[in-house]
Nucleic acid binder design. Structure first.
Length: 670
DNA sequence: AGGCCTCGAGTTCA
DNA sequence: CTCGAGGCCT
């Protein structure tokens, strides 16, 4: 890439800037993960350009703030190299194996795996068993003296019973619950909030006034012994990492209890995988796993590279925030004609899967972000699955970025695009294609018709419908029921067996409920719930065609807007015609309720249930006369919670709503 | 009119 | 899951 050099310059400046905010001011603008992504790109580029020696990234990182006394570390404070996936881990592992062979070792392999705590590294010096100095890591060779603050931390022994001279290293961190309390306090006082627990911990320890530190309830985990000699000056440093941890624990230090001694790389991977899903469940932040060779004597012989130990590695959890480049912005036309801009990006791995597209919702979102085509962006995939562009890194612009404009004409049918107006006549942010016969809308309607909550025709996916439309084999929902096996077999990539299966599932879908049919019609404002309400007011399927405004509005949950929308749909002859013909093809069955045990009860489901799927649970609740809502409120009767519940669980606790598990739930309907 | 609550619609990848 | 807006209650 010809722009490589320029980008390196820009990346260096940006990385430097954010490193400054991170280390010196404890007030970052971007997340650690996004910062990591920038550093990684810079390293990669430098490697390609052969610039490795002069780069800023070769510095170990950190700077020393003026207001604290400087401390020259007696032992160098390394940071670990990072790996991000099993491949990279394997490479590290094989390299270590080669070094072990190089020093003539071929005994058993053992490694400790520890959680990598997201906090502030602290170095504690004891003389004759008494804590005499505490420092931050700083740049690895010079840190800041924070002894006066460390004395306020309860979990750090000020005196060890044995009169040893020792240097121990660990992490100071803040509990998530404490951060919440402190931030809500700071919010009240109009003070700037801490971005995360690590910044809060760092901010709390880098105080000139130790009284502030005292109130912050800082916690610690100690994990390394750098030096340990007894009163006579004899080296009594344990020979193993587990031994070190045991000594620390015996002598009153706080040691994390998740550490495990492992024997192989596959065990390491298992340990790592085990903690990925539960990493957020601890009071401390965890951003990965640290693997250390168990034998410390051999470790020293294996030694160090220019900037990190060879015998240990930080195996970082998959990032939920990364950087990538927006290569294009395209638009999509949905079922309702809504035109949504979508960013097409250089594919990146985020939270375990490769992402290349992200919705931008509407033009306002693009303006809010200040996004142009060609921009480098920070991409996030939090808890959920849906990627979101968080921020544009304007500093990395080259000048060749292009501004995106909403198309004036629908890209699918060429019809002039319109902006919808809302109830008070303002133009809303959404753009629409007004053409009801727009191919994109017809496709969307059909996909909706066969969807799970609609007629539920499995085996008739988006692609197949698209193909069938393209080939003019179907034009309306009705045609689906006229499909023959031969129609499908002629399609590309369609085998005999799968065609048969699809025909089978179409046959099965002929027996359905009125609610499913009405939902499937895709009338605007009529979703799953409203379709059910309408179906329940019709004694016979035919009555749907003769609904009037009064009848509709009389239904609890239906107002003017929804009623108008339904009547609007019914006023079109083609729609009425389609409905009649569909009825002729279908067998409408009554919904049979098994009981009314749950009538007047509203449920909210969260997390994964042990045996029931979410939909099965929902079905059970509805079959027994209950309702299922999407969010917890004061009116919720029960929250049905499984493992890894979401925010709903907390909401329930806050509102005092009864929380039940699957077993208790099944008892309710028994 | 304002404040809840609930529903609809859009959304990504394997 | 989240946003926005419809419906209903006060």
């Amino acid at each position: 890439m010809a722009n490589g050099k320029k980008r390196i310059e820009q990346l260096r400046a940006l990385v430097d800037y954010h490193r400054g905010l991170y280390h010196t001011h404890d007030a970052p603008e971007i997340s650690d993960e996004a910062y990591d992504a920038l550093v990684r790109e810079l390293l990669d580029l430098e490697n390609k350009e052969g610039l490795t020696t002069e780069s800023l990234t070769q510095k170990v990182g950190g700077a020393v703030i003026e207001k604290f006394k400087k401390v020259k570390h007696q032992t160098p404070q390394w940071s670990y190299d990072n790996v991000f996936n099993f491949d990279e881990l394997t490479k590290w592992y094989e390299k270590l194996e080669r070094f072990l062979a190089g020093v003539g070792y071929n005994g058993p392999r053992a490694y400790t795996a520890e959680l990598k705590i997201d906090g502030l590294k602290i170095i504690l010096v004891y003389e004759k068993g008494v804590l005499v100095q505490a420092a931050t890591r700083g740049d690895g060779s010079v840190g800041e003296d924070i002894t006066h603050n460390i004395l306020e931390i309860k979990s750090i022994p000020k005196k060890i019973s044995a009169p040893v001279n020792a240097i121990v290293v660990g992490e100071a961190w803040m509990q998530k619950s404490d951060l919440e309390k402190i931030n809500s306090e700071r919010n009240k006082n109009g003070e700037q909030l801490f971005a995360n627990t690590r910044n809060a911990a760092a901010g709390s320890l880098r105080q000139l006034d130790a009284n502030v530190t005292r109130g912050r309830n800082i916690q610690t985990f100690i994990y390394t012994i750098d030096k340990l000699v007894d009163a006579k000056g004899k080296n009594i440093h344990p020979n193993t990492q587990s031994g070190s941890l045991a000594w620390l624990k015996e002598n009153g230090f706080s040691v994390n209890d998740k550490t495990k001694l492992l024997k192989s790389i596959s065990d390491i991977e298992k340990y790592y995988q085990k903690y990925i899903p539960i990493r957020d469940s601890f009071e401390y932040g965890v951003d990965g796993v640290v693997i250390k060779f168990e034998d410390l004597v051999l470790s020293e012989r294996v030694g160090y590279t220019a900037k990190a130990p060879r015998f240990a590695i930080a195996y970082k959890f998959p990032a939920e925030e990364v950087t990538t480049i927006v290569e294009d912005i395209a638009v999509q036309v949905g079922r309702t004609g809504a035109i949504t801009p979508v960013a097409h990006m250089r594919p990146v791995l985020v939270a375990g899967s490769t992402v290349a597209r992200a919705t931008l919702h509407n033009i306002d979102e693009i303006h809010r972000l200040g996004l142009k085509i060609g921009d480098t962006v920070i991409l996030k995939k939090a808890g959920d699955v849906i990627p979101e562009i968080m921020r544009v890194l304007i500093e990395l612009r080259t000048g060749s970025e292009k501004t995106f404009h909403m198309p004036k004409k629908c890209p699918e049918c060429g019809k002039e695009v319109v902006q919808k107006t809302n109830s008070i006549g303002e133009q809303s942010v959404a753009y629409y294609c007004p053409n009801k016969n727009c191919p994109a809308q017809i496709l969307g309607q059909l996909i909706h018709f066969v969807s799970k909550k609609g007629l539920n025709i499995v085996g008739l996916g988006d692609r197949i419908i698209e193909k069938l439309l393209e080939e003019n084999i179907i034009t309306t929902a009705l045609d689906i029921f006229k499909l023959k096996k031969s129609d499908l077999v002629n399609l590309e990539k369609f085998g005999d067996k799968s065609a048969e299966n699809t025909i089978d599932s179409i046959a099965q879908a002929r027996t359905t409920t009125l609610a499913r049919l009405i939902y499937g019609l895709g009338i605007s404002h009529v979703g799953e719930e409203t379709a059910m309400l309408i179906a329940n007011t019709c004694n016979k399927p035919n009555e749907f065609l003769h609904l009037d405004s009064d009848t509709l509005v009389a239904v609890d949950g239906i107002g003017g807007t929804v009623a108008d929308s339904v009547l609007d749909w019914l006023s079109e002859d083609a729609n009425v015609e389609l409905y009649k013909k569909l009825l002729a093809e279908l067998t409408i069955t009554e919904v049979v309720k098994s009981s009314n045990k749950l009538s007047n009860k509203t449920f909210v489901i969260t997390g994964t249930l042990p045996t029931l799927s979410r939909d099965q649970a929902k079905q059970l609740i509805q079959d027994n006369g209950g309702k299922v809502a999407g969010s917890v409120s004061a009116k919720t009767s029960y929250v049905l919670a499984g493992t890894e519940p979401g925010t709903k669980y907390k909401d329930a606790q806050k509102l005092g709503v009864q929380i039940i598990d699957e077993v208790e739930f099944l008892k309710l309907i028994k």
